[in-house]
Amino acid sequence: MPDTAPAAPAEAEIAALRAEIDALDDAMHDLLMKRSAVVARLAGSRAKGGTTPLRPGREAAVLRRLLARHTGPLARERLVRIWREIFMASTAIQGGFSVAVHAPSPQSGHARLAREHFGPIAAIRVHPTPARALAAVSAGEASVAVLPAPAEEEAGAGAAWWARLEVPKLQVVARLPFVGEPPGSPGALVVAPVAADPSGDDRTLLLLEAEAGAPRARIAGALAEAGLAAPSLIVARVGQATLALAEIEGFLRADDARLASLPWARRTILGAYAAPVVGDAA
């Protein structure tokens, strides 16, 4: 005879919880479909105005707002990964998107950062040099380039990609990863053929050309006198020039009066990016 005994209390509770999850899944799916419809309308408006769907600053501001209200067992990094996939799905609705990465191999750290940020199904192509990755963006073959974050050890060789960036045609617009960057991780910068947009908490990359042999202390002092806080400063000797790449706190614009007070004529804003946020480990 079939067993007609009532389900054990634990089984009944599990069934009720699964039913609750199913209802939540349906509600989340409904909201995703509604969000996609709004994005499609936005894409139509952008097509008329000729604007770009790439808004790294806006995305960072949304993530900060969600992280500020986030509670519960879902890890902060997981929340960001979920919303990054939503962002990229929305970008795909608005047109094609592809990524050019400078990395030794598709399995290297920078390629992994690109996949985590832009999604595992994004069209990503690895290039052997930063110049090749940037050329792909300039030619319209890729939407963005992902390049190694500047480091002191590669600056003196005269081959630093940031020293030859074609501004304003190409600009830095984001830093990877946005959340939970551990010390010593292979950070990367995103370069795109659009201007960076402010997120509310940003860092600006400022390229300076000082006199030959200018010491680091003089450059740091000039920045401080101008009222420009620089958490990091990379100095490179390239030929007869002294190039300095300063990470400046805040979102600098070309008409900022503080730039005019610097003692060097060449001062170029290479772009800006949202300041990274801490992850669960912190």
Rank of each mutant, 00 (worst) to 15 (best):
V80F: 02
R112V: 13
D25T: 14
W161Q: 15
A151N: 08
A281E: 07
A236N: 03
L79I: 15
P198D: 03
T4V: 14
E249R: 15
A257G: 05
V167D: 05
L223G: 00
L223T: 01
A274W: 09
L113C: 11
P56K: 06
A40M: 11
A174W: 08
Q240N: 06
K169H: 11
W83C: 03
E249D: 14
G49S: 14
A275R: 15
A142D: 09
T51M: 01
A212T: 13
L208P: 12
L24K: 04
I124G: 01
G239V: 01
A260W: 01
G239H: 14
A61Y: 09
P9W: 00
D22C: 03
L32V: 14
D26M: 11
R164G: 07
A103H: 12
A37I: 07
E211G: 15
L32A: 12
A265G: 11
H110Y: 14
A136I: 00
V99H: 03
A27C: 09
A244G: 06
G50I: 05
L134F: 03
A275S: 11
T268S: 07
G96A: 15
A260M: 00
L24Q: 12
G95E: 04
E59H: 10
A257K: 15
V146T: 14
A254K: 10
D202V: 09
